[in-house]
Amino acid sequence: MMTVVIGGSKCGKSSYAEKILDSFTGKKFYIATMIPYGDEAHTAIERHREMRRNKGFDTIEKYTDIDEIYLPKGYAALLECMGNLCANEMFKDEEITAPTEKIMSGIERLKAQVQHLVIVTNNVSCDGIAYSKETMEYMRIMADINRRMAEIADNVIECVYGIPVPLKGMLL
């Protein structure tokens, strides 16, 4: 099974994504994609670690190349978050590359390995502001990836100020 949890900034998507796997009794992996760079990133990472404490997750830090992850069959994984992974892949070299296919093949691989794959992603395209060419390209690729993930996901849940709203499938 695959579930996508989407929302804006601080909308409760992480808490909800973790809650989905509360009842999962097997081993759970947390795939962290945020590079610990700068004070704000460290604060965010520490806050998320605190939230996950005692919830039985094994953390895997993978900032790019999620297609290299191998997980034993039958477990669950929570990947957080697509916004960081996409930016890390896009802006790692001087030349911007479109990582859609690479990321999607990684997602497909993970989905085939685990019993339940939960992915936290971001809605980044609703502020109506015209940004630089690079940022617009990031918004386009994020939207592409979100659409592609939604196609293969069983459930797509949007979080609005902490309230889960089912867009596809059902609430878990």
Partner: peptide, 28 residues
């Protein structure tokens, strides 16, 4: 709802956006 966009460049804007999200979760 102000959180569904690009992370603002200005730190004050980032703090505002995040605090609005958290406060909104409490209200909800």
């Amino acid at each position: 709802e102000i959180g569904c966009g690009i992370i603002p460049l200005e730190k004050d804007d980032r703090i505002w956006r995040e605090q609005t999200g958290r406060a909104g979760c409490i209200i909800a």
